[in-house]
């Protein structure tokens, strides 16, 4: 039992470290929050003059779930990539020689990415009333659960990628060939069913599509059945994200164990 308490302590301190650093660097918080706010009000504000409201939903409201998804995506992948930084700056060795299991290291990192993501999601949710979206306590709770699951799975996905990266030179490749396409092809900016066929197929294979759609099911429930509304039943979104979480949780552990 003492051993489990020890592993829990390790998981706690590994995630605490990242959260502590995130909160300490005010510029980092500002920087990460600037992105969704720019998208929301600059892109969304401009586009809402081109796109007519459908089902009582205007374009800014439409992209809001996508902005939460984007925030989670960036925060999670960034947090996971810190493994590469840790390796480059030697700190990973300090973790690897400690008497804790590799499993706890991965869980600690995944919890770090999840909590940093959730912190940013909470900040974004301040805009819910500003945007004229109404949610009740249950919806708020569901929003936190869906965001948490998505954040955890995307951080595990990031760990899977980061374990295979030997240096941070690969970082731009990851950003341009993985993170950005995942974002654009997730239905965050435009409905998946309106995409050209090839892109639509890719979007169907993108787990973030279901994460974002799940958020739409909570935030844009009123527009169900219209082009602006959610595209799949909530249960499908939940099942796909849960499946993605299970797969990435296992694979990130295997991959980190091999790399470490």
């Amino acid at each position: 039992m003492a051993n489990i308490a020890h592993e829990m302590k390790a998981i706690y301190v590994i995630s605490y470290r990242e959260l502590r650093k995130f909160i300490r660097e005010k510029s980092r918080i500002m920087g990460t929050m600037a992105r969704p706010i720019l998208w929301l009000f600059v892109v969304g504000g401009g586009m809402s003059r081109l796109v007519r409201p459908v089902g009582g939903i205007n374009y800014i409201q439409f992209i809001f779930p996508g902005m939460i998804g984007m925030t989670i995506l960036f925060a999670s992948i960034f947090s996971a990539i810190s493994i590469v930084w840790d390796r480059e700056f030697g700190f990973l060795k300090e973790i690897l020689v400690a008497p804790i299991s590799r499993f706890s290291v991965v869980v600690g990192k995944a919890m770090a990415g999840t909590s940093i993501s959730m912190l940013q999601v909470l900040i974004l949710l301040i805009f819910v009333p500003v945007l004229g979206i109404k949610i009740n306590a249950l919806q708020f709770l569901l929003l936190l659960i869906s965001s948490g699951m998505l954040a955890f799975s995307l951080t595990c996905f990031g760990i899977l990628v980061a374990s295979r990266m030997s240096s941070y030179e690969g970082f731009n490749i990851i950003m341009n060939f993985l993170v950005m396409p995942m974002f654009f092809l997730s239905g965050a900016m435009y409905p998946v069913k309106l995409m050209p066929p090839v892109l639509r197929e890719i979007a169907y294979a993108n787990p973030l599509t279901y994460g974002v759609d799940g958020l739409k099911n909570i935030l844009l429930a009123g527009a169900s059945g219209t082009t602006m509304g959610p595209e799949y039943p909530a249960i499908v979104d939940f099942a796909v994200v849960a499946g993605f979480l299970a797969v990435t949780a296992v694979l990130s552990n295997l991959s980190f164990r091999r790399a470490a």
């Binding site: 003492a2 390790a10 470290r17 502590r20 660097e25 300090e94 008497p99």
Partner: peptide
């Protein structure tokens, strides 16, 4: 192998917790 973004105390606390 220190974390430059943490204080001296935090670096040591991190270590202490890793060692239970």
């Amino acid at each position: 192998t220190l974390d430059n973004g943490l204080t001296a105390y935090e670096n040591l606390l991190f270590h202490a917790y890793l060692y239970g």
